[in-house]
Design a protein around this nucleic acid. Sequence first.
DNA 1: TTCCAATGTCGAATAATTACTACAAACCAG
DNA 2: CTGGTTTGTAGTAATTATTCGACATTGGAA
Lengths: 213, 213
Amino acid sequence: MKSVLVSEDHAIVRFGITAIIKDLIHPVQVVEAADFDETIRRLSETAFDLLILDINIPGGNNLQMISAVRLRQPDIAILIFSGYDEQMFGINYIQAGADGYLEKHAPEEEIRRAILTMIESGKYITPGIRSRLMEHTGHHRQTASHEGNPLLALSGREKEVMQLLARGMSVMNISRTLNLQVTTVSTYKGRIFEKLNISNVIELAEKVRLYSN
Amino acid sequence: MKSVLVSEDHAIVRFGITAIIKDLIHPVQVVEAADFDETIRRLSETAFDLLILDINIPGGNNLQMISAVRLRQPDIAILIFSGYDEQMFGINYIQAGADGYLEKHAPEEEIRRAILTMIESGKYITPGIRSRLMEHTGHHRQTASHEGNPLLALSGREKEVMQLLARGMSVMNISRTLNLQVTTVSTYKGRIFEKLNISNVIELAEKVRLYSN
DNA sequence: TTCCAATGTCGAATAATTACTACAAACCAG
DNA sequence: CTGGTTTGTAGTAATTATTCGACATTGGAA
């Protein structure tokens, strides 16, 4: 029997996913976790075939989640389930070792396909993501290389903060969302502004609108 | 037979809600709509007992949604389904005539209770929201006058400040530009946000872009 | 290998912003 | 006229944000 762990903090979303899984696969055992602690606890108890992991899960929210999971279950298939606008930095999770990537606003059909594909082949990447992956592999830093898209000059964490800032979220709020100190977020903000050569969030929002795929 | 219309753009969320409804009520007919246009279309075709409406639905996203719905079906029960950041903002929908208010991150139990209560009594408000409602009642002006353009609700000085804010200028900077105390500018900023029903400069910039001649 | 720039993260101190409260002048509906 | 509302303006106190300097890691370049 296949078994799946659904880590997602919004109850309805969890509910929806669980329903889809049960409708799609059988026999199947589905376990739910509402935060990262619980996720880890479940992983220590039971072996799963697939983990569907919300990037924004409370207590998680960073690339180390992947290794924390792999530490417990090296062979589990990890499908990153990414919310709002984190496409930009979602790929970082793939590079960090996740096996699949699905966006929360994907249509039902794609969600079904993703889950099924993950269970069957252990991988699920859309062509769009794949090509973006291509771009990213290889060249990092060195200003000159990101000719076309200035946003590529930002590091993973910076991109994350950038997204939130561009949505109008306050520094304090971001710090809570990402479980970081306010000063840390502020530091990122400064570095972002510097790298993008801008001086306020309005300009940031513009750049993001312009260059975010 | 009861019938419910679920207006929500995220497929999984829609799926989850539909599943809960079907599990909760029977016989029941559930129709889904992914954007506001579709919502209106459905409302024109069929009579529903309950509408579960995502505030952030594409094509909607404003208080006029309520009247648009009521225009078609005066007696439908409307449950506002509000996402993350819009809690503060959501109460306005209640004042605009919605019958219930539910947050997306509510636990499954509450979601069930809300839907059931709505179907049975046509209303659902949590104590928390109710108290916030209390506070808010009292200061609402004659919304009707500035139908099309919300920016018209602002006074001269406010518009002035708005313009600068939308350019990304800081409060301090504006205070120097206009020879006012920072606190004065801050007061304007607050009043602007309140009048436009927004909570950060990004949204302000959007409104300005949208409604400025 | 070694070393350095880039990255992720903070704390202390300092600066900027907001929340409340206030109040007078201007407006306006009755 | 008259009392209620809106507008322009601030002060005080409480929050938030930024600056600066640090430090441990990491991935490459040399």
